[in-house]
């Protein structure tokens, strides 16, 4: 059986918010080492990968691997009903058809239990190869969110260019063009590692959706390499991450 307790529901709320705009149904695979989830969006343009190691949890027990088919909209409704500082315990039997969520207030005076019906999902699982990225950029996640929002006013396509001088985001559309450049800073809030300069185009709508994960982490890591998907990674405390992969746009 599975029993996993998070000290604060706030973390689960942030995780669900980071997932639900991009995927609606997904399987959460639980094992003794933690929880994993991987799904493509409906258009198969992007892939989201979530990993929560046992260290994310106050208490974690998973005797046998269990796969939980989740409707993220339903899960979102349940977590919304809880207060952020409640603790939450997720539990499921070995061959479960439902997930139990038990919320407990700080002073233990209020408990709320929900049963969420699980789904039988038959999803493709993709193998993500280890990639030696040509460019790796780290910046404040709020800065990345701001850039993605500003770019999307100009065009549905965002061009990302990265050189040793910095990272540049460009958008060209009917109302004009936008260019935002960031250089590495001495105080280390922006770091830019470049093996080879690169320029690639991406759908701004997806980049914007990835920034729903901003509350999870102060920092975001952006990795680019020729002819492979962009990686946008937010770490989750010290024991997990949410990674978004986005297929590039290519010239006709």
């Amino acid at each position: 059986m599975l029993e996993a307790r998070l000290g604060e529901t706030q973390l689960l709320k942030k995780i669900v918010d980071a997932l639900k705009e991009i995927i609606s149904l997904s399987t959460l695979d639980c094992s003794e080492t933690g929880m994993q989830l991987q799904s493509m969006d409906n258009s198969h343009v992007s892939l989201v990968s979530l990993s929560l190691q046992t260290g994310c949890f106050e208490k974690y027990r998973c005797d046998r691997n269990v796969s939980l088919g989740l409707d993220l909209k339903s899960l979102s409704k349940v977590v919304k009903s809880a207060s952020g500082d409640d603790s939450v315990t997720l539990s499921a039997a070995d061959k479960a058809d439902k997930l139990l969520l038990s919320f407990e207030s700080d002073n233990k005076s209020r408990t709320a239990d929900y049963e969420l019906k699980l789904l039988n999902l038959d999803q493709d699982h993709l193998g993500i190869p280890d990639t030696n990225y040509a460019c790796t950029v780290q910046m404040p996640s709020s800065e990345f969110a701001r850039i993605c929002r500003d770019m999307s006013m100009f065009s549905e396509t965002v061009v990302i260019s990265c050189t040793k001088q910095g990272i540049k985001f460009s958008a060209n559309g009917d109302l004009g063009s936008a260019n935002i450049k960031l250089a590495e800073t001495s105080k280390g809030d922006i770091t830019i590692d470049v093996e080879e300069p690169i320029t690639q185009s991406f759908a701004g709508r997806y980049l914007n959706t990835f920034t729903r994960a901003t509350p999870l982490s102060d920092r975001v890591k952006i990795c680019l390499a020729p002819e492979v998907p962009l990686l946008v990674e937010y770490s989750i405390e010290d024991y997990g991450y949410i990674r978004y992969y986005l297929a590039p746009k290519v010239d006709d």
Binding site: M40, H44, L126, S201, V228, P229, A247, K249, V250
Partner: peptide
């Protein structure tokens, strides 16, 4: 003009 590629063309099913 640019065309959107599919993520499944980069990562293979396992």
């Amino acid at each position: 003009n640019s065309t959107q590629t599919s993520i499944a063309s980069y990562f293979k099913k396992v």
